[in-house]
Design a protein around this nucleic acid. Structure first.
Ligand code: FES
Ligand code: FES
Lengths: 136, 136
DNA sequence: ACAAAATGATACTATCATGGTATCATATGT
DNA sequence: ACATATGATACCATGATAGTATCATTTTGT
């Protein structure tokens, strides 16, 4: 799977924040998006650590988008929650394969991976919001 | 990961069979390809069930390629060992997402998946063998 | 006939990534 | 002070993949 659940949840949360454009608590996000509360909190904390949202503690506190939606790329989110986009780790017995440089199959998988990366890298939160879609 | 270990092992085994072009036992495959014996057997049995190799029991028995290398497609192997190529299963809480039809993100992931499929579908065992590669 | 060598079938276990939970500490507004 | 929020972190659950074990069946050679 290219997009893990955590990444997907993050997209939904960010979309909600962007559309509401007001400080929003994790509780509200949980309620509106039907995402389990502790999991949601973990996700928001990750987003905070990586500077995608700003947070404020205390009553009335919550999260605010910290970057413009057009600056938030899907590849960035994938990186945070799943690590680098990777479809091509020829692992033989848990050791990275020594033949990668010359391997035909690896080359082809590399092509796929690159294409996937390019597509994902061009998708921003803004596009997702405006894309005439239903995500979330 | 696009190609699972089992699929990769299958490719190596088939390549070996194709190059040797003689009846070959699982024991030899295990020995030569450094793949765990019971796992190798399981893989060969799957390949047999799906008609990619023919088998013969008894002393001196073993496996033979049952299709021409150019007829063995990577997508076929992926199907056997991993199921359909799929990078795009928006699963929300274990239920297939109802928004798929209109979802922007799903559309983009679908594009990636389709590209991946097309590339894999054009790779045959023959190409892998002749590809100036080292797979295995 | 018999033993050995091979595959067929199938059930089981192990490992690991992901998804999800729980707890306590810390900050903030009233 | 106290309630309400997030920060940090450790823990648990689940499922997919990788790998193992066992027994039945077929074939060959003596
Ligand atoms: S919201 Fe489910 S496919 Fe996009
Ligand atoms: S054999 Fe490892 S990259 Fe192909």
């Amino acid at each position: 799977m290219l997009i893990a659940r955590s990444t997907d949840y993050a997209v939904r949360a960010l979309k909600y924040l962007a559309e509401k454009n007001q400080e929003t608590s994790a509780a509200e996000l949980t309620r509106e998006l039907k995402i389990p509360w502790p999991f949601m909190r973990k996700i928001m904390q990750s987003l905070g650590k990586h500077g995608l949202v700003a947070s404020r503690k205390g009553p009335g506190g919550g999260f605010l988008l910290a970057k413009a939606p057009e600056k938030i790329k899907l590849t960035g989110l994938v990186n945070i929650f799943q690590g680098p986009v990777c479809l091509n780790e020829c692992i033989f017995k848990k050791k990275i394969c020594p033949n990668r440089k010359t391997c035909y199959l690896s080359k082809k998988l590399g092509e796929i991976e690159e294409h996937a990366f390019l597509v994902l890298d061009r998708i921003t939160l803004k596009e997702i919001i405006e894309g005439g879609h239903n995500h979330g």
